[in-house]
């Protein structure tokens, strides 16, 4: 477990900054709700019957924004993107850093197998991802509760969203690692993995403003765990959970398979 310890320590400072950022965003977002609620635009009611694309122009999803949880659904996508960026960069970075920092000739002549290196690095990355997710979950529950005086408890949907976000984080992490394992040039892994992540994000934005092309939603993990749908159903869509788990398994498999056979870039 020495590689795990080393990796976790090496990424600790970064993780602390990400966590602070996450915490601040939840705080700032819910503070905005505080101001929003007191303004109380009752006229919002007429929007409930409007089509998606028109609503999007006004920046409103089809949920009651005057409740704390309704407002949190808007905030959630920002937390989601942040966590996704973290996971993608971490996944690609943790496997390519030895080659890019030229420390590969230190680590790999040690009596460890490639499988063991990948496994311990992956474990360190998963730990980071889980910690960031816990920070998001705890701060969301606390701040939403703080602004939710008198409203119905929002803890369950928030935790469900966070479970969904964790699965999506793991998908992005495993895609980042797979890119690092498959691509010959370690410099390409970060850009390729983040290009996918952004395409997925912009695809989600596109799908939010239309009713067409909904089959494309399978391509973007941002749509697997849609905040509004989770609040309405008070449950995760098990189909998407199953897809997430299989994607994670497939990309992890690809990572191990290719990394073992890879000529290191030294």
């Amino acid at each position: 477990m020495n590689i795990f310890r080393h990796e976790f320590r090496a990424h600790r400072t970064g993780l602390i900054w990400w966590s602070v950022g996450m915490l601040f965003m939840v705080y700032a977002g819910m503070a905005k709700y505080g101001g929003f609620k007191s303004a109380g635009p009752a006229a919002l009611d007429i929007f409930k019957s409007l089509p998606k694309s028109v609503l999007a122009v006004f920046g409103i999803g089809n949920i009651d924004l005057t409740t704390a949880i309704g407002f949190f659904t808007v905030l959630f996508i920002y937390l989601f993107v942040m966590a996704a960026i973290h996971a993608t960069l971490l996944g690609a970075g943790i496997l390519t850093e030895e080659e890019l920092e030229r420390t590969a000739e230190f680590l790999y002549p040690k009596p460890v197998s490639r499988v063991c290196v990948v496994a311990e690095k992956a474990l360190a990355a998963v730990t980071s991802v889980i910690i960031l997710n816990l920070v998001a979950a705890v701060s969301s529950v606390v701040f939403v509760a703080a602004y939710n005086k008198g409203g119905p408890t929002a803890t369950k949907p928030i935790l469900l969203m966070m479970v969904g976000m964790l699965l999506a984080q793991l998908i992005f992490l495993s895609i980042g690692m797979a890119a690092a394992a498959v691509l010959n040039n370690p410099k390409a892994a970060g850009p390729v993995a983040s290009a996918y992540m952004f395409t997925a994000f912009f695809l989600k934005l596109g799908l939010d403003i239309t009713e067409k092309y909904q089959w494309l939603r399978f391509l973007t993990p941002f749509r697997y765990y849609d905040a509004v749908a989770i609040v309405k159903a008070s449950a995760l869509d098990w189909g998407y959970v199953a897809i997430s788990v299989s994607l994670i398994a497939v990309f992890t498999g690809i990572t191990f398979y290719f990394y073992r056979r890879r000529d290191l870039y030294v």
């Binding site: 090496a10 920092e101 030229r102 420390t103 000739e105 230190f106 009596p111 460890v112």
Partner: peptide, 14 residues
């Protein structure tokens, strides 16, 4: 590799 010691031509460390 338990029993190998290696010194590369260029050294880079963390």
């Amino acid at each position: 590799r338990q029993e190998i010691g290696y010194l590369p031509s260029e050294v880079f460390y963390y």
